[in-house]
Design a protein around this nucleic acid. Structure first.
Lengths: 341, 341
DNA sequence: TCATATTGCACAATCGTTTGTTCTATGCTT
DNA sequence: AAGCATAGAACAAACGATTGTGCAATATGA
């Protein structure tokens, strides 16, 4: 295609200098290699005039650096991840890098496929929201020395760095809030069971319950998806021991739950209370603004990027595993019950 | 980093064959170059055993093909674009390509910057939602022979192919719907004025009005943003000649409008009706489910990708400019007025 | 049996950079 | 004036694949 592009050699010819010199000037190594002022200016001038655009592939082949990182998320359709993607993309661009984005579609096989595709491209690092609880393929790359940071979801017992939310605390806050409002039959619709954040959220939920001596434990679900929220809510509504509150462990699950509740004409919070993990601007304009555990998305993105680049640049930054505090955003979806007292 | 990776030459050594032969077998050109069955199997076996991963940069340098396309959107945070990104990403991955995603942040300067970054990478094609009405930098690349498809927003008078919605028709439908429900004072909050979709939407709005002999024309706004929707709605509410309905030209504008309305305690649709361009799952769960003009996002993504690849593969596909019909999704945000009759 | 086809594969150039090393002036020192 | 330092720049070898062409060895045909 666009292959009449001008190359470093053309500039060399036109300036009467060597490609070596041109390369060094254009890479800002002029002083280091004592290139004369005049030569420098001549080169820069011509390069600008001809609109020289270096061929990154050639450079990459030689240096092994691609100025490219990858971001893999379970679904760009999930506003939570889209937000992360947007943030990271901006951070990365400012460093002169580009981001290859992979959408694993919440499917481990796809995730593996994407990592494979990436392996052949000399990307310099990966920020990933692992979609499942399988980590062999990720660890393999990490072991080969490829900088990797997990965000949001991660693997506790591995030595792969991560930046996430204090999920236990978040779930604890949400559950305690429900309890404080008088709820005692609190259902929790979870996502991927074996994933670390999910386990911790469940633990937070359980801890809050047991702290208050509540024995009714109601955990269902197995996917961070709309569908899961919908199905499980439908089922919950069938129970004899109907919950007065539902705690959904992701925004997608919450949306599914809302659909089910709407279908059954059950009002939030009058008939049932709802609280969820993950915030989103839309939540404020819902029929009932949804109380939620807001994750510090921007900070997570920033820290993850910063850390990834410190790894890429081999500045040993001592920041392997970090959890940020979430925020409990109380809106209007939780009703105060007095039934118990 | 991971530079003890095995290369084509290693396989050549181990099999006792030449790199040429190995390359040809691994690229499926065995028949074409009459490589013997035995050699083929030996090569494939070893390649698999050693988990050979080709260095795309080397190949790319030689062939000029990068198996990479770029997608540039104004904001991944906008669920409409996130949805597009997700769709395209999946399409592209299935073809063995990867997607570099650029978030131009609704800023032309950033968009230019991104295109520059991409120029040096031998990407094979671009799908872009141009953020503004400036096209010189895009046309330049297109003129150099780089396959480019605009989606959603596009430039009418240029020869750059596009896939979008029939914006005129969509706006016409929405406006006519409002009129049919008895509204006569209908405000329209627009986005980037000079952009083609915006112009066409405005035209659809005007055509519907004039068709019904409505003289009150109320157009404000200048950005496809939350902020614009918020501000303009606030201002509209100050007018003496207050509109009974608002038509927002994007989902972001609609959200801003909702915020303003909520602040002013103005109920939808009781006090004012609202209809918007762009659908989103969340819209169904809003305080008042928002009637909208739904764009065929999936089809747009599919067609755009298909066309881009036909360009990349130089199959001259006669599909330069295409507009898909939008759908009017009537929900509950438009009130039937009888005041006029 | 000799000429010609065909099969199977290797040589070596090439893609556009980067970079360790070398080389030649010129200037400086004493 | 001889010796050495330094400034300024070029040589040429990589990086790891792809590919036009050439060259044996074997098969085929008359």
């Amino acid at each position: 295609m666009t292959h009449n592009r001008i190359k470093i050699n053309d500039i060399a010819q036109l300036t009467g200098l060597s490609t070596t010199t041109v390369s060094r000037v254009l890479n800002g190594k002029a002083k280091q290699y004592r290139i004369g002022k005049e030569s420098q200016e001549k080169i820069k001038k011509i390069a600008k005039e001809l609109n020289y655009i270096p061929n990154q592939n050639a450079a990459n082949l030689r240096t092994g650096r691609s100025n490219t990182i990858a971001l893999i998320v379970p679904s760009l359709n999930n506003p939570f991840f889209a937000n992360i993607a947007s943030n990271i993309n901006n951070e990365v661009r400012d460093k002169g890098y580009v981001t290859i984005v992979g959408d694993s579609d919440e499917d481990v096989a796809t995730e593996k496929l994407i990592l494979q595709q990436l392996s052949s491209r000399n990307i310099e690092g990966i920020i990933i929201v692992p979609c499942g609880n399988k980590w062999a393929h990720i660890k393999e790359l990490h072991d080969q020395g490829l900088p990797i940071v997990c965000i949001d979801r991660y693997f506790d017992n591995l030595d792969i760095p991560f930046v996430s939310t204090d999920n236990h605390h978040g779930a604890y806050l949400a559950t305690r809030h429900l309890i404080e409002q008088g709820h005692t039959i609190i259902a929790c619709i979870q996502g991927v069971k074996e994933s670390t954040p999910n386990k911790l959220r469940i633990k937070g939920y359980l801890d809050a319950l047991s702290e208050s001596g509540i024995k009714d434990i109601l955990i269902t679900g197995d996917e961070f998806s709309f569908h899961c929220g919908y199905i499980e809510t439908k089922l919950l509504l069938q129970q004899k021991n109907k919950p007065t509150a539902i705690f959904t462990l992701s925004n997608t699950i919450a949306m599914g739950a809302m659909k089910a509740l709407k279908e059954e004409r059950i009002k939030i919070p009058d008939d049932i209370s709802l609280i969820t993990f993950d915030d989103h601007p839309y939540l404020d304009y819902l029929a009932t603004p949804l109380s939620c555990v807001a994750q510090p998305v921007t900070d997570i993105s920033k820290i993850a990027t910063k850390f990834l680049f410190s790894e890429i640049n081999r500045n040993k930054m001592p920041l392997p595993k970090i959890l940020l505090k979430p925020n409990l955003n109380i809106k209007e979806s939780v009703k105060r019950l007095n039934s118990r007292y």
